[in-house]
């Protein structure tokens, strides 16, 4: 899609370019303008850092989720898996393991979860939302069993320091998320795997007929997602400085919302990785603005839901308008 937009920018009239941009872009710009007028501190460096930090973890979940949604799938287990991996790392650190070993263990957990999701969805063709709902239950349950429901704290401050550190005034987590975006972008738009992701969502049979092991690629997408989620647990621990089984519950909703806001559809392998970045920013800016207005976190979720519906309605109307115009 990025290629197509660049290409359209070079060759096509501006209207064609505008049509390819998801509706959330306009909402995002609108929100920034409104918040900037309403609150002069919105445009401050401190607030940008806040929005960046807020976005980084969500982006880490939403980016691989984009790949899954491109294959016409869904992963409801990312929030629970994130919590579980955080619990695993924290528990092992407290038990005296080194950081690399603890992270490796979390990666292993991610690998297993991704393999279960991937094999059931990719090879057996089961509906992704129920399969991943099941693994969500498994992960939540396992976190509960490990922690007995209590938060774990008192492990190495290295993670928090890492989370709070900056490179040239840019928070490190933002750089990490940007790096993940760069890698996934390369993977999606410049490798065979990326092509196959679009092909699975669009026409999996065609991929089979091209002699590709489409089921394996399909499984790989879930593995990739779960492994990224396992790594993201480091950011989670850095942010909260403690691990709690239910801390990340619900993050899968925001991740999915960000992807859908960014214009990625559950059908035909249509979507855009950078759109997800826009979606994440929209959610973070909204939450930031609502924080300033001291809206309670529980109502903020409701607002994210409304944002999603608004964006979907905008995109639907624009699509109809462009079809009628054509």
């Amino acid at each position: 899609m990025t290629d197509q937009i660049v290409h359209a920018a070079l060759t096509a009239p501006a209207a064609a370019l505008l049509r390819r941009i998801p509706g959330v872009t306009f909402i995002l710009v609108g929100m920034i303008v409104v918040f900037a007028i309403g609150n002069p501190r919105f445009l401050s460096a401190v607030n940008f850092t806040n929005i960046g930090l807020q976005s980084s973890l969500l982006l880490m979940l939403a980016l691989p989720m984009t790949l899954i949604i491109l294959t016409a799938g869904l992963d409801l287990s990312v929030g629970a898996l994130l919590g579980l991996c955080g619990v695993v790392i924290a528990e092992l650190l407290v038990a005296g393991w080194g950081l690399p070993a603890s992270v490796a263990a979390a990666m292993l957990v991610g690998l297993v979860a991704g393999a279960v999701n991937g094999v059931l969805v990719g090879y057996l063709g089961l509906p992704a939302f129920v399969v991943t709902l099941g693994t969500m239950g498994l992960c939540e349950g396992l976190s509960l069993v490990i922690t007995n429901g209590d938060p774990i704290g008192g492990f190495t401050p290295a993670l928090e320091n890492f989370y709070r550190s900056t490179v040239f005034a840019v928070p490190t987590p933002v750089l990490v998320a940007a790096l993940v975006y760069g890698l996934l972008s390369l993977l999606l738009y410049r490798t065979r795997f990326g092509n196959y992701v679009f092909a699975i969502g669009g026409n999996k049979d065609a991929l089979h007929l091209a002699g590709i092991n489409a089921n394996l690629v399909h499984t790989g997408v879930y593995l990739l997602c779960s492994l990224t989620v396992a790594l993201s647990a480091l950011l989670l621990l850095g942010r909260t400085n403690s691990a709690h089984p239910s801390v990340a519950v619900g993050m899968e909703f925001e991740a999915i919302a960000a992807v859908v806001l960014g214009g990625t559809s559950f059908e035909k392998g249509q979507g855009w990785l950078f759109g997800t970045v826009l979606g994440v920013l929209a959610i973070s800016v909204l939450r930031n603005g609502l924080n300033v207005l001291s809206v309670e976190p529980s109502l903020q979720v409701v607002c994210v839901g409304l944002l999603l519906i608004t964006a979907l309605l905008i995109d639907r109307n624009r699509k109809q308008a462009s079809q009628n115009g054509a």
Binding site: G202, K268, Q270
Partner: peptide, 8 residues
């Protein structure tokens, strides 16, 4: 057709 709609 065996084309994937959102590949060029």
């Amino acid at each position: 057709f065996s084309l994937a709609p959102y590949l060029d």
